[in-house]
Computed example of a mutant assay.
Amino acid sequence: MNNSSQVHIYTDGSSRGNPGPGGYGIIMEWVGKPYRKEFSEGFRKTTNNRMELLAVIEALRKLKYPQTAVTVFSDSKYVVDAVNKGWVFNWEHKGFKDKKNPDLWIDFLKEYRKHKVTLQWVKGHNDHPQNERCDTLAVNAALKKNLPPDIGFEQQ
């Protein structure tokens, strides 16, 4: 990949109970190339919003080249609206005072600023193939045995 590459990232998060065991799913596609990778991970106790946001963070971390043009497709209004409506930048300016998941938002902004990121909301559970697959990956990750802790959640 190089600076002219375009990557599509599809993400979803899930938790069985809120909080409860949770997971995320990621699909990464290199536009115009036969490249597709899937990733997922589960945690023993977390929230749906944390998994939605962590999926985006982990996907951005996997990009190898700075300033990659990437479109992230997510069914999370929490994540997409926070960025597209500028809320997260105001939260950052105010030190994330009284905001949930500041650890993840700080990590998100670090990764977000390394690339040319566009976030696009997609309706969940609406037969969008990649979104449905990400949901399956996230749910299956949450169902695994001996899940690690979501340190940021459990230390709040």
Rank of each mutant, 00 (worst) to 15 (best):
N90W: 13
L109G: 07
A82H: 07
W91P: 06
N18G: 00
P148W: 06
E38F: 11
Y35W: 01
K123H: 07
Q156E: 13
N84G: 10
L119P: 08
Q130I: 05
N49R: 00
F39W: 07
Q120M: 12
Q155T: 14
Q6W: 03
R44H: 03
C134Y: 08
G95Y: 10
K45M: 06
W91H: 00
D12L: 06
R44S: 04
D107W: 14
K94H: 10
S76K: 01
K99T: 02
A69E: 02
W91I: 01
K110P: 01
G32K: 09
A141W: 00
L53A: 04
R133Y: 09
V117K: 05
V31I: 09
N90T: 15
P129F: 14
E38C: 12
V31T: 07
W91M: 06
T11P: 03
V117L: 05
F39E: 13
K114R: 15
Y78M: 12
F153D: 12
G20S: 07
E111T: 07
F108G: 03
I26N: 05
G124I: 10
N126I: 12
S14V: 00
F108M: 10
V88T: 09
G20C: 08
Y24E: 02
F108C: 10
I27S: 07
Q156M: 13
E58V: 11
D12N: 14
H8G: 04
K99I: 09
L137E: 08
C134E: 03
F73V: 03
V72H: 13
N131T: 10
L137G: 05
T136R: 15
E92W: 04
A138H: 08
S76P: 01
Y65H: 13
G13Q: 02
D107T: 11
F43S: 05
K116I: 12
K97G: 11
P148R: 09
P21I: 13
T136W: 13
E132D: 10
E92M: 11
W91Q: 09
W121F: 15
V79P: 01
D103R: 15
N3Y: 14
A59W: 00
R36F: 06
N126Q: 15
E41I: 04
M28S: 14
L104M: 05
K116Q: 14
G124Y: 03
G20F: 00
S76L: 11
P66F: 11
I27W: 06
S74D: 10
V31F: 03
L137F: 08
N18P: 02
Y35N: 05
Y112H: 02
T46A: 07
K45G: 13
A55M: 06
Y78P: 13
A138M: 07
R133F: 09
S74M: 03
